[in-house]
């Protein structure tokens, strides 16, 4: 909305630029972008666009829009690609971590399903022994998607299950072994230690950090804490079928220094899409079609 309002202004000067940036900053705060990141973005745009040096005839509004847009895309760019999964060189083990209830178990199933539809030999391991009904949840999802799974109703040590499950599926030559873990948070030290142990036990190819798109200002600290303990290599943002704009995603990228690979758009197994930064930024700013900004 902020962007749309700006478009009515044809000749911005320094004050108009500042006012526009204020409105954009506001929109971003309402989208749950981290307070400090918003301040930074403001500074970066101000220094990127030198209004006074621009001659007549230049569409200054568009220029500013593009600067904001580019800056947001830059913030979503981790600077490197996601950890590549390769077929035919042994099993890829991908471990899912994240806060409680953010969508790990659901997303594990979606992720496994995505690869199985591409013809990969895929399976699921339930290493959550904490949450009531966790194994049933994974089992029912896996069964519906016709994906082999491993778990236990009696073993209480999640590291032991993860080790056994990964070992078995490795021996059976699976291309992709997806490991689901319990929800955890940085304040609970024992849970983070368990996550480290799990990592040393299963030696994952990639660790996916799953984050709910509705998260507010706690996003950065939590994501950074996960990254400080294990080698998070990619991020998946869930529940984007909801109303939340998902500004926490910027924090997740900044804090984990990892790219967003997929998004979750519903509770069903196929409601899962590759992440497209430009579309996501459009959503953040409350704009529909942003292709005009991308082509200039």
């Amino acid at each position: 909305a902020a962007i749309r309002r700006m478009s009515n202004n044809t000749v911005p000067d320094e004050t108009v630029l500042k006012q526009m940036l204020s409105e954009i900053a506001r929109a971003l705060l309402e989208a749950d972008v981290n307070v400090r990141a918003v301040q930074q973005l403001r500074g970066n745009v101000l220094s990127a666009v030198d209004i006074s040096s621009l001659g007549a005839g230049v569409n200054k509004v568009k220029l500013i829009q593009k600067a904001v847009f580019d800056e947001l895309c830059r913030m979503l760019d981790a600077g490197h690609k996601a950890v590549p999964l390769k077929r035919g060189h042994g099993s890829n083990v991908v471990m899912f971590v994240g806060l409680q209830g953010n969508g790990k178990t659901t997303t594990c199933a979606k992720y496994a399903y995505h690869y199985s539809r591409k013809g990969w030999k895929t399976c699921l391991v339930c290493a959550d022994t904490f949450r009531a009904g966790a194994f049933d949840q994974l089992k029912q999802n896996a069964t519906k998607a016709k994906i082999p799974f491993y778990g236990s109703y009696t073993e209480t040590d999640p590291v032991a299950i993860a080790t056994a499950g990964v070992e078995r599926f490795r021996a059976e030559g699976y291309d992709l072994i997806v490991v689901d873990t319990s929800g955890r948070h940085k304040q609970e030290v024992a849970l983070f230690e368990e996550m480290e142990q799990m990592t040393s036990a299963v030696k994952p190819t990639d660790i996916v950090f799953v984050m709910d798109s509705s998260i507010g200002q706690a996003a950065h600290d939590q994501a950074a804490a996960f990254r400080s303990r294990v080698d998070v290599g990619s991020v998946i943002i869930t529940k984007l079928d909801g109303h939340a704009k998902g500004g926490g995603a910027l924090s997740a990228v900044a804090a984990t220094r990892s790219p967003i690979t997929f998004i979750g758009t519903g509770e069903h197994i196929d409601e899962f899409e590759p992440f497209v930064a430009e579309r996501f930024v459009g959503r953040l700013l409350g704009m529909g079609d942003v292709s005009g900004l991308m082509t200039t």
């Binding site: 178990t105 949450r131 009531a132 009904g133 966790a134 194994f135 049933d136 949840q137 994974l138 089992k139 029912q140 999802n141 519906k144 509770e267």
Partner: peptide, 16 residues
């Protein structure tokens, strides 16, 4: 009656 494992989750709590 929708989400996978929801009934078992509640049953576990009821039992505990």
């Amino acid at each position: 009656t929708f989400r996978a494992g929801a009934v078992e989750q509640l049953r576990t709590h009821a039992t505990c």
